[in-house]
Design a protein around this nucleic acid. Structure first.
Lengths: 336, 336
DNA sequence: GGTGGCAATTTGAACGATCAAATCGCCCCG
DNA sequence: CGGGGCGATTTGATCGTTCAAATTGCCACC
């Protein structure tokens, strides 16, 4: 940076300034051991003075890699800023690994696969992070056939035996922790409120509840509630459950949205204390809208992101390690 | 796609298959008028059969452009999924303009400027979207000195006279609409609850309230409340205001977080109706956690994103049009 | 003093695209 | 029948980097 336009500084300019060839400059940067120490310092000084930075397009062309990971950004639905948080962790993890995150949004649903293919074939990205894996997601076999590198956040439900690499959080374990927490606070009639059957992760969380309840010999009949997205429907579902003859005294929930619904349905007593115990899932900041704040099960998003990036970059770089699933444990954040 | 590995298909392969030179293939794609019609169809067939897609790195190298726009993803704070929503609009708008969005997260604060510079100098991105412009943001003059293309979402508060290009939403106008709405519902003591002075957009929203109140000759003394981030502090601030001798009957708020606080502080009457009127800002889905749902002022994020992208791509492509500010109008979403 | 070996450095080629200039083929006109 | 003009196509050079192979210089050893 000496006032001149530094954008046009190439490796040859540096080479000329340092009185060496361009390859030596390249070696200083990429294979320092090959270069004599005082040559290296001379070159480094020239790099510094000229403000040289290697051109990414040229590197990408030569290396046949873009050092970009692609992520489809889904249409924003729901209240959670889950994606916000994961995106941040993912971007940071990618950066630490020398990669960037490249976002795209296919315009039409039937364009989605074409968009993925295009990004790979043009070399715009080296691989994909799939953060929105649905049950029997048809993208997974499609990618595998074309040997397009990808890693899922979330198990490939319905095709667990496929040769897929994923990172996920053990939702059943998390819910079990939630049940234990409520039992510890004296609850015995603990209900589960979550999504209708069919979402892999939702079903798993429900199984976690069943297992924990069974371990303590607690009743589960009539204690399951399901509803779709949205606080309003969650409130209605929880109200129906509370209106039954032997209502639950607490809820573990498939999501914070469900949990907010349960809390609102239960209401507060005269002292401003919640009438029902509630444990949510995901520990979204939105859960803090409810006062007093709810307990919730926190997913280790930073760790998830790091593992996703490390698995994906390995595959991108041609490591033909076998498909691998990584399961992480969530953590109960207990609040008053 | 005929079973062979299509990732290695180059323009020369297509040329050979079609019996023409590589430049003719290039012309078919980029300058169709130069090519004889039947040659063009022959080439297009070859492209189709081989599944050719031009290599992005090679194009970028040659064109000296990456067709990527950079966006720093801020650490997730607060309950809003504002960024989620804007990011989606921005990605879609960029895609429509032939660009991609590239995310990055500088690790340390003092690395931030260096990160920007690096991304430009290496040619990783062509320009930046600044979605988190703070008052007297030092990045703006810094970019301008280096003629780094950028466009702000949000006015450059404190340096409005600088040569900066921005797109923003007229918050004062929005708040005025909110006040009118509350007046229409019979309210006269309408308070403003928002951020402490010093955030440009917050101050502007407060001025909008003052102006609308003044127009109707309504009292404003003692009707201003301020607090920082978070629902809890917002609740406390609203409670203090409601405890005064002549309390407000309604609040217009600087954000949905403030609005949720006001609503929670006001509480519900015996019929489940809110005791105070509330208008929020930003119409975030989090606002729907409150039941009945609040009115809120919605920013036209799709339009903002389109304008940002169109201004930025123009600057990136070397148009030396003068700096330009675009002001858009928000819209009141009135709810029961 | 010639030769082998080795470390340090340089040269040539390649990555895959596009621009600019050169070439080709054809028709028209004097 | 030769040359000008024009549309269609091709050739050569280039973008900035890195790999592989070639070259240089130096020292030790016989």
């Amino acid at each position: 940076m000496n006032g001149r336009d530094a954008n046009g500084v190439t490796i040859s300019d540096v080479a000329a300034a340092a009185g060496v060839s361009r390859q030596t400059v390249s070696n200083v940067l990429n294979r320092p051991a090959r270069v004599a120490p005082d040559t290296a310092t001379r070159v480094r000084r020239a790099i510094e003075e000229l403000g040289y930075r290697p051109n990414r397009a040229a590197q990408n062309l030569r290396e046949r890699a873009s050092r970009c990971l692609g992520l489809k950004i889904p249409a924003p639905i729901g209240v959670s800023n889950f994606l916000d948080r994961f995106l941040y962790s993912l971007t940071a993890a990618a950066g630490a690994a020398g990669y960037h995150l490249l976002l795209f949004a296919p315009t039409a649903v039937d364009e989605e696969l074409a968009t993925y293919e295009d990004l790979i074939r043009t070399g715009t990205v080296d691989g994909f992070v799939l953060a929105d894996v649905s049950a029997r997601d048809r993208r997974l076999p499609w990618f595998a056939e074309r040997s397009i590198p990808f890693v899922c956040f979330g198990r490939p439900w319905g095709q667990e035996d496929g040769p897929y690499t994923w990172v996920d959080v053990d939702g059943a374990y998390g819910i079990e922790q939630g049940v234990e927490h409520l039992i510890g606070r004296g609850h015995r009639r603990i209900a589960y409120l979550g999504w209708p059957e069919g979402t892999g992760f939702g079903d798993e969380r429900r199984r976690g509840w069943l297992r924990a309840m069974g371990r303590h010999g607690l009743e589960t009949d009539g204690l399951i509630g399901v509803c779709g997205e949205g606080v309003a429907v969650a409130v209605a579902a929880a109200e129906r459950m509370l209106a039954r003859p032997e209502p639950p005294t607490a809820f573990v929930c498939g999501s914070d949205t469900h949990a907010v619904g349960a809390r609102l349905a239960g209401g507060l007593d005269a002292d401003g204390r919640p009438r029902v115990g509630v444990v949510g899932f995901d520990d979204s900041p939105a859960a803090s809208l409810i006062s007093p704040r709810m307990s919730s099960i926190r997913q280790p998003l930073d760790e998830v992101a790091r593992r996703v990036v490390s698995l994906l970059t390995a595959r991108v770089q041609g490591s033909d390690s076998p498909p691998e699933g990584v399961m992480l444990r969530p953590e109960l954040v207990a609040r008053e």
